[in-house]
Design a protein around this nucleic acid. Sequence first.
DNA 1: AAGGCATAGTTGACAAAATCAACCAGATAA
DNA 2: TTATCTGGTTGATTTTGTCAACTATGCCTT
Lengths: 161, 161
Amino acid sequence: MIETPIGEALHRLLHAYKRAMREAYRDIGIELAIAHIRTLKLIHQFQASTGAPCTAQAIAIRLERDKAQIARLVKDLLSAELIEKQSNPDDGRSQLLTVTHHGEAMLERIRMAERQASQRMAAGLSNEELTTFIRLGNTMTANLGEPEGRRQSSKSIPQEK
Amino acid sequence: MIETPIGEALHRLLHAYKRAMREAYRDIGIELAIAHIRTLKLIHQFQASTGAPCTAQAIAIRLERDKAQIARLVKDLLSAELIEKQSNPDDGRSQLLTVTHHGEAMLERIRMAERQASQRMAAGLSNEELTTFIRLGNTMTANLGEPEGRRQSSKSIPQEK
DNA sequence: AAGGCATAGTTGACAAAATCAACCAGATAA
DNA sequence: TTATCTGGTTGATTTTGTCAACTATGCCTT
């Protein structure tokens, strides 16, 4: 077969992965798009790991996305009543986002769907191999994440360590 | 930091990678989108490895994309005179695609841009680690690529081995 | 030879993902 | 008080991707 460099391997894997995830979500009756699901998961993880609510700014930083896109994703999740917002007492411009009970239930269904697809993806690979893959992937992401300039949404935002 | 499973690591890496590639292409004055570039590269690789021209069907199979999308990508590349087509003598429905000299020159510029970004991405990693990453990635892609049904563009098309 | 089915490619429509720019209200620093 | 920065919003656009229906051609069966 044709030799594939890293970039090509990545494209193919993420495309296959997204397709598998979409099918798994659809099989369970979840109609959320993948970006919405990632955002919902991040809001929940933020709460769980810091004990504090999340902000749109934190999501934009963590996902390295344009804040405009995050705003639209958050708006959709609010409309679906999967998250809710309160005014931030420390910053009048900002809202604190938390996952609702409805959102918690949705997250549980998402986990079920992902478990199945992830097991299929990882078939024949040891835990060590999976850990190695994640480590190498995160290293490359970090390598790419130190820009020389022109990054928009995070141009003057310090990278979290 | 928050633990990231494989899916999350993949999303972040490909997003960072695509952004780095776009910046590298832009720095060199290339205005093609990434999907167009991947298609152009594939047509060239197909020629180089088989000695025969490429077809839209072969691209759809190799990239695992909907044939409608491939048709649009091919149309754009034809308009940009990066590739050209001839009627397939063996199949009146099909056209054979080849890269033009203009396309060859574009590919050379693309390789220069990618070399720089790839080196930055791979900083600190050995060749063995990069090879391992690609191998694991391709294994997972293959795991996901054996559908139980509902795949559109490749539903009745046998997977290449 | 004719009919039925499958296929290569095209087109329309739509959804998802992502970026860029401009804006407003609030926060901070001088 | 003023200037600058920031969190978030909205509009516009580009890129990526999927689904369905269609046409012309190819293949198989009768």
